[in-house]
């Protein structure tokens, strides 16, 4: 009896793991094959896009990096991402502190405002924003992207941070205030050090969203030299569509920073992105 039960358990487990492995292949295989294809010659990729290379070649990376203008694109994405992170952390840190710690008349209004704001679709404001940016002459600048990205990232991160800060005991900040700190000092000296992990989560989420964003940067940026990685990559695939190996290689180059960050901080990513999140 006992052994039969054990056997049954083992077969059940076997089926579970087999099924999960199939799903694993479905999720990961397309990406692994992209990496493999980036080490093939173009002719090799074209005759057999699935499977290992006949001969491993490594020049695709140098070629795609140079032809695709990736040094420039990386710089643009890091610059736009960095600026957006700094501004978002500043304004959202201040705002979330007010919403979670301070008592004031319109607190309810502001909280409700950001809750509604989360679900406003980009298409509702992209057309006026575009023509407004055009009018004041900052269309086709990286600054225009920083501005819209900051605005778009505010509601979600505001609420994420508000929830976290709400969990920090108020006594700590009160003690600081009794010692003569003003609100800003108690935020900087007490709350921020405790809330470091959540600030890191916000920074990561903002960075990934900026790095991956396509619609706005494709609309706002016309000059190649100012394009971010995602837009530059899509343009590259259009211009050099004949060389498949380079397209696969450019894909790897385009997603590498995000994937690396994901492997280092996967738990932060998953927690941040699934905390009542909105699809990006």
């Amino acid at each position: 009896m006992k052994t039969r039960k054990k056997v049954k358990q083992i077969t059940a487990d076997g089926f579970k793991y087999a099924f999960l492995t199939i799903m694993l292949v479905f999720a990961a295989f397309p990406l692994i094959q992209v990496v493999i294809n980036s080490f093939k010659t173009d002719a090799d990729v074209k005759t057999m896009p699935i499977g290992l290379p006949e001969k491993w070649v490594f020049n695709n990376y140098r070629d795609a990096w140079e032809i695709g203008g990736y040094a420039r694109a990386y710089f643009n994405s890091f610059l736009v991402g960095g600026c957006t992170i700094v501004i978002v952390l500043t304004v959202v840190g201040l705002g979330a502190y007010a919403l979670s710690k301070l008592h004031f008349k319109m607190r309810g209004f502001f909280t409700a405002y950001f809750f509604v704001a989360i679900s406003l679709p980009g298409f509702l404001y992209i057309v006026p924003d575009y023509f407004f940016m055009n009018k004041i002459g900052i269309l086709d600048t990286r600054m225009s992207l920083v501005i819209v990205y900051t605005a778009m990232q505010i509601p979600f991160n505001m609420l994420l941070l508000r929830t976290f800060l709400g969990g920090i005991p108020r006594e700590l900040e009160e003690a600081a205030k009794i010692d003569g700190c003003n609100e800003l000092n108690s935020l900087l000296k007490i709350t921020v050090p405790i809330a470091k992990p959540i600030f890191l989560t916000v920074a990561l989420l903002v960075f990934v969203n900026v790095w991956n964003e396509y619609l706005w940067s494709n609309t706002f940026i016309i000059t190649d030299e100012l394009k971010t990685v995602a837009t530059r990559f899509v343009k590259f695939t259009g211009e050099y569509s004949s060389n498949m190996a380079r397209i696969y290689t450019a894909s790897v180059i385009s997603i590498l920073p995000v994937v690396l960050l994901y492997f280092i901080f996967s738990n932060k990513f998953i927690e941040g992105m699934t905390s009542g999140s909105v699809k990006g």
């Binding site: 999720a27 396509y214 990559f233 899509v234 385009s254 997603i255 994937v259 996967s266 990513f269 992105m273």
Partner: peptide, 17 residues
């Protein structure tokens, strides 16, 4: 962690892949 990877990747790049 593995099942979540495709969600982290840029839609534009995944689409082109």
């Amino acid at each position: 962690v593995v099942y979540f990877i495709p969600y982290v990747i840029s839609a534009a790049v995944a689409g082109k892949i």
